[in-house]
């Protein structure tokens, strides 16, 4: 049987090293590469050709969730397995919504990591029992706050990240990119990127249109 090719992405060396050592004596698994942030993951996929990417959520540049989304879009044969400290609903659901095939907490033991790698590499989903209950809760609507908090999921604004919404609010208040950059402690380039991404995500022609939608949604 071919080995499962695994790319490990975490901004902490100790975690990458730990995972590598833990999986080193497993004949069915081969660590084909490491990445320290979301961008590096995307850059390394073509050369390393992994079956599964183990992704941390909080990483610099591109977060694990955003990376999972990009992987699902660009490399449909590569599966994302989240490996995170975050044990609550929002991170788990957001990961799954963005194409993750599995979600493990960082205190998971080796057997469970192996099981998850096997399942996910075969094209199945894998969630440990503690996490599965999150889906049931969400289905049963115990998360009323969440549903209404995010508004109608079909609106263009629901596609924006939190940071993007924050920037959009500032644009609506009449701030320019430099002022926004100063206020948020970002570079102008990052703000400009966010603006471009907002237009791409919402498929709206220009920022004026986007601000109009934002203002209307706020009224409703």
């Amino acid at each position: 049987m071919a080995k499962i090719r695994v790319l490990v992405a975490d901004d902490h060396t100790v975690v990458r090293k730990g995972l590598k050592m833990l999986l080193a004596d497993e004949d069915s698994v081969e660590i084909v590469g490491e990445a320290a942030d979301g961008q590096e993951v995307l850059d390394k996929i073509p050369e390393t050709k992994p079956d599964v990417v183990i992704l941390d959520i909080s990483m610099p540049k591109i977060s694990g969730i955003e990376a999972a989304k990009a992987i699902a879009q660009q490399y449909s044969s590569v599966k994302s397995l989240m490996f995170s400290m975050h044990n609550n609903q929002d991170y788990i659901l957001k990961s799954v919504e963005n194409g993750a095939s599995g979600y493990l907490l960082k205190d998971t033991d080796k057997e469970e990591i192996m099981l998850a790698l096997q399942k996910v590499s075969q094209g199945d989903k894998y969630f440990p029992p503690t996490i599965s209950s999150v889906f049931v809760d969400a289905l049963l609507g115990r998360s009323r706050g969440r549903a209404s908090a995010r508004g109608n999921d079909d609106t263009p604004l629901s596609k924006l990240s939190r940071k993007e919404r924050q920037i959009l609010t500032m644009i609506a208040e009449g701030l320019n990119s430099r002022e926004i950059a100063d206020k948020l402690g970002l570079s102008i380039r990052t703000v400009t990127n966010h603006r471009a991404n907002m237009l791409r995500k919402t498929k709206v022609k220009n920022t004026v249109e986007l601000v109009r939608i934002a203002v209307e949604e706020k009224k409703s």
Binding site: H12, V14, K17, G18, M21, L22, M85, K106, D107, D109
Partner: peptide, 14 residues
């Protein structure tokens, strides 16, 4: 700290 602990956890598992 959380990630360092994760590192310890993984090494222990070895």
């Amino acid at each position: 700290v959380g990630q360092l602990l994760t590192g310890i956890r993984l090494q222990l598992d070895c």
